[in-house]
Every structure is written in structure tokens, then in C-alpha cells.
């Protein structure tokens, strides 16, 4: 039986124009066999979660290098839970201090990635999450 394709939303919330990482990750996930919907820049938590509902996405990946990660992740998590997407994976990457990574964990964002993290690590993380879900 063929593995069902993992569907990933990638988005840049807020006013952060640094889209290099988001685009590179989007492309790497596609090459790893996943389906990616890239929403682009200047998204709001609302627009991201709306897209996640419409696309019935498995994974929501957020890229933030602007320092607004706590505000955006918190709001996106709330909205996802409210929209019945509590069982989906919320993750992301950017310039996120270690201390904030711990705070993100508390609100249910288990892992985020940073500069220098390997693309394969991101792919593996999503695949392992999916495998654990299937069990």
C-alpha cells in the first residue's frame, strides 16, 4: 500500500521578508515526496489556519526570523486547536532563541529548526511524526 502523501502548509506570518529558508524547505519537502502549499509572505495566523483547514493539511510549517515567533505560534496553535486541527503537526524555523524554544514546547510546538539544521532532519522529523500518528 502506498504511503499517503503528507500535506504541508508553509507560510511566513507577519512582516518578515526573509523567505529564503521557507522556500528552500518547501522545495526539499516536495523532493522528499510531500505535497507543499506555500502561502508566501505577510500571512496572518488566521489566513494560515484557514488554509490548513481548507487544504486539510497534516503539517503547518511557519518560518519566522523577525522575533515575533512567540506571538504567532501561540495564536496559530490556539486557532488550530479551535478548528479541530489539534492533532496536526505545528512546527517551524527561524531565528528562535533556545529559551523561547522551551516556551514553545510548553504550548505544544515540540520542535523548531534554526540556521544550520539539515534539511534531512526536517524531513525525518515530519516522517517520524507521521509514523507515530499511524500507530
Amino acid at each position: 500500500m502506498a504511503e499517503q502523501r503528507i500535506k504541508v502548509i508553509i507560510a511566513k506570518p507577519g512582516l518578515d521578508g526573509h523567505d529564503r529558508g521557507a522556500k528552500v524547505v518547501a522545495r526539499a519537502l516536495v523532493e522528499a515526496g510531500m505535497e507543499v502549499v506555500y502561502l508566501g509572505l505577510q500571512q496572518t495566523p488566521e489566513s494560515i489556519v484557514r488554509a490548513a483547514v481548507e487544504e486539510d493539511a497534516d503539517v503547518v510549517g511557519i518560518s519566522i526570523l523577525s522575533g515575533a515567533h512567540m506571538t504567532h505560534f501561540r495564536r496559530i496553535k490556539e486557532l488550530m486547536d479551535g478548528q479541530g486541527l489539534g492533532d496536526r503537526l505545528l512546527t517551524g524555523g527561524g531565528i528562535i532563541p533556545t529559551k523561547d524554544q522551551a516556551k514553545l514546547k510548553e504550548i505544544g510546538v515540540e520542535k523548531v529548526f534554526g540556521p544550520g539544521d539539515d534539511l534531512q532532519e526536517i524531513i525525518d522529523y515530519i516522517r517520524h511524526w507521521r509514523a507515530a500518528q499511524a500507530r
Partner: peptide
């Protein structure tokens, strides 16, 4: 900061957290 770079005031909704 980012809101300033986009020509937005600090009280604009898109400026939240930035």
C-alpha cells in the same frame, strides 16, 4: 523594526509581536 520598514504604525494589527 519590521512595521517601520513596511511603513506601518506600531498599533497596526500586522505589527503585533514585531
Amino acid at each position: 523594526d519590521n512595521p517601520t520598514l513596511y511603513g506601518l504604525d506600531s498599533d497596526h494589527p500586522l505589527a503585533a509581536g514585531e
